[in-house]
């Protein structure tokens, strides 16, 4: 088993509320892992802890053998974890292409580039050209090329979600965290999205962790599922196991029967 990410006993509190409560888990190389649970179960908070938006109060997170807990968000992104947001957070006044190009900015790790880009040295011009080309190539691969010069906010909702994924991909991640990518989509868009997620996983050799309320998505593409409730991990298993797990049905769906 080749582990990419390990979450060790992570706790995150907000005042008296324990949003994530001693969460233990792992993600395997190339896996598509689902994270489900009722509203307020702490799923997004867990994402925020993994991506460094919040530091964990207890426990640590190891990514590719390196302890990343307490690191700043941009450092973690540079290590290879990219994410999308539950409420779309595009750079709305910038074009589609610019949105993707922003994510390539992390290639300029040295502040020497700053002076180079002001003076416009040949290598900075080459770098800019390369970023543009790579941005366009990425847009072509996700099918947004024809919108490259449109404002991000002018895209229809479904495409904005897609652009958010493309923007995350542009950071050249090893692992991708998707926070409710299917929210607000119609069934047609949702099944396209499922195909799209599977596609990018194999194309970009990604490990993907996904939060989703749409059970069709979770059961359709995830190989393994974690279920959270009140900040705790309450169940783990493949889709069949989760669907028949009485604890999950009780906690997550009340007394109703799944599907």
């Amino acid at each position: 088993m080749n582990e990419v990410l390990r979450i060790n006993n992570v706790t995150k509190r907000f005042g008296g509320l324990v949003a994530v409560d001693r969460f233990d888990g792992y993600v395997k190389q190339g896996e598509l892992l689902g994270l489900i649970g009722p509203n307020g179960a702490g799923k997004t908070t867990l994402f925020n802890v993994i991506t460094g938006m919040y530091a964990p109060d207890e426990g640590n997170i190891v990514f590719l053998g390196k302890d990343i807990s307490g690191h700043k968000p941009h450092e973690i992104t540079r290590c290879g974890i990219a994410r999308t947001f539950q409420n779309i957070r595009l750079f709305s006044d910038m074009t589609v292409l610019e949105n993707v190009m922003v994510s390539q900015h992390l290639k300029l790790r040295n502040w020497l580039w700053f002076f180079k880009s002001i003076v416009k040295t040949p290598d900075s011009i080459r770098m800019e050209k390369q970023m543009r080309e790579e941005g366009l190539r990425l847009l072509r691969r996700v099918g947004l090329e024809s919108f490259a010069n449109e404002k991000a906010s002018s895209l229809p909702y479904g495409l904005q979600r897609k652009l958010e994924i493309a923007r995350a991909l542009a950071t050249d991640p090893k692992m991708l965290l998707l926070d409710e990518p299917a929210a607000g989509m119609n069934p047609q868009e949702t099944s396209e999205l499922m195909e799209f997620i599977k596609q990018i996983r194999s194309d970009f050799h990604l490990t993907i962790m996904i939060i989703e309320h749409d059970m069709k998505v979770i059961m359709g593409i995830c190989e393994r599922i974690y279920v959270m409730d009140y900040g705790k991990l309450i169940a783990e298993g493949n889709p069949q196991q989760i669907q028949s797990n009485p604890v999950v049905i009780k906690a997550y769906l009340g007394e109703e029967v799944l599907l």
């Binding site: 941009h74 992104t77 994410r83 595009l90 750079f91 709305s92 006044d93 900015h105 995350a168």
Partner: peptide, 16 residues
Amino acid sequence: KAIREDPIAAKAMGIN
């Protein structure tokens, strides 16, 4: 500009 539009998303895209 990305920082102006959304500092949190900018962070998540690897910008310090």
